[in-house]
Nucleic acid binder design. Sequence first.
DNA 1: GCCGTTTTCGGCCCGACTGTTTTCAGTCG
Length: 578
Amino acid sequence: MSDLANAAIADALDELGDLYELDGAVIHRVLAYHKAAKTIRDAPVSVAALARAGTLTTLPGIGATLAAKIHDLLERGEIPAATKLRERYPTGLLAITALPGLGPKRARRLFDELGVDSPAALRAAADAQQIRSLKGFGAKGEAAILVALAAGGAERPRRRVVLDRALGAAERIVAALREIEPQAQIELAGSVRRRADSVKDLDIVVDNATLLDALGGLESIETASKASASAARGRTHTGMTVELRAVTPDQFGNLLQHLTGSNAHNAALRERAVRTGLHLSEYGVLDDATGVTHHCASEAEVYALAGLAYIPAELRENRGELEAAAAGTLPKLIELSDLRGDLHAHTTASDGHGSIEEMALAARAQGLDYLAITDHSATHGFGDDVSPDQLRRQIELVHEADARIGGIRLLAGSEVNILPDGSPDYEDSLLAELDWVIASVHTSFGLGREEMTERMCRATSHPLIDAIGHPTGRLIERRLPYELDMDALIAACAATGTMLEINSNPDRRDLNEIHARAAAAAGAGILVNSDAHSTERLLGLRYGVWTARRAWLTAADVANTLPWTALAAQSKRARSGT
DNA sequence: GCCGTTTTCGGCCCGACTGTTTTCAGTCG
């Protein structure tokens, strides 16, 4: 049986669901495929391993039929039903359904009646004015198709914006609105509030409708218009869509909960509620028994009516939070103030912009008790490598600064490169002089899955490597993670006592929330580090904490919530006596 | 296709918007 990644299995089920939908299957069957795909994509364990163990149906939404199809995929490399349907419906047809306004039903009509099987064929049919005469279409629909094609909608999905840029824009808008109406309730909603890796647009809820008219006048807004008495829509100069919604204070909780989502969370929440005779919407909670619709000023009231504990926004992805909220077993999530130290930061010795002292003072100002100076190592390129002699000098400088600067403990460390053979790029005798070593991959990203896994697992077996930095190398919306068996790496870390980093750089957030949750479940030590290259970037620790919260982590799951002495005492170095 | 304070069949979240429609289907979030 092959060892497909969860994401690959999920993609296959999503595709099959789309094909079934084109084929006219009942919508609930289609949804079953997409739900199962999401469950698999979010699973903190290897689904291929579950298949080998014969326990696939323990996953919610996976029954006998889907389990059999997943077995086919793993054993034969394909799902026969998908292969058959692909022969009937060309891939170009699926591309057409990605166009705004064109779903499976209308795409199917274009295919059946005009033979349209690709974006190019669609353009030709629209140019020839063949579409307007079709049932369900018209001249307007035909024009909309041409507009969507011209916008390139069929080739690429609309780009998502990485959280820090989106959050910056959102916070500027909220601050500007607060200046106009200081008494109003103004809250971010949507995926920005859930602290997702990236977001598509900005949702903001206010309890004062006069603010709807103010949106267009804000400095950061390029254009805006009032869509209704309770909504305004605008666009920032950077091209992000902003949806501003106004509601009376007594329904503020209903709307905020609705717009915060996620869609999967809300759908599952409403399905649960229906079973107890309640119907949730953005307007209130309708009780079948009494016919009364309850309005909720706060989100906590919405969840309480549904019989649930309050669910923090970061957990609202339908990854088990509803069940935990019903059972009273939601974790007490880690907070930024729980972090006691930061074990990954750079200075001007390599590619950072601050001195040791500047970084130390900035970390102290943030309330941290310790900071590891971990500049790049001997083989780092770009002319900012640190030779062995320079590192010896750097160790002295860190110790000297540590003695001089009060209120923070400075640790002499390094971010060493993991060479393709899995070894670090300093001699062991030099590594032994350091307080802290974090090891990362910065070269040879293109190794095969097995070689890369072997390379990284080998690094974890090195007695002087304390932790693995940004373990997958991904850059959100820019670079895919390298091929790696994360289950194997997590197991190797747990076995050797090597810690895994959640890198807080908002472009990385690596480990991601799925892997971080899996690592915690496997008993691996987890760090939330800034990887700061400047004093300002130390503030980025909140992104790593948000990833940790989305991974369900508590303070006890994250090693650098401990004082340095306690962390050092339980490190693998201390345990092995090196 | 899944699932069970409606248990092995009959349901399956809610509402807005759009365009093509005389009451609604399709799409979207």
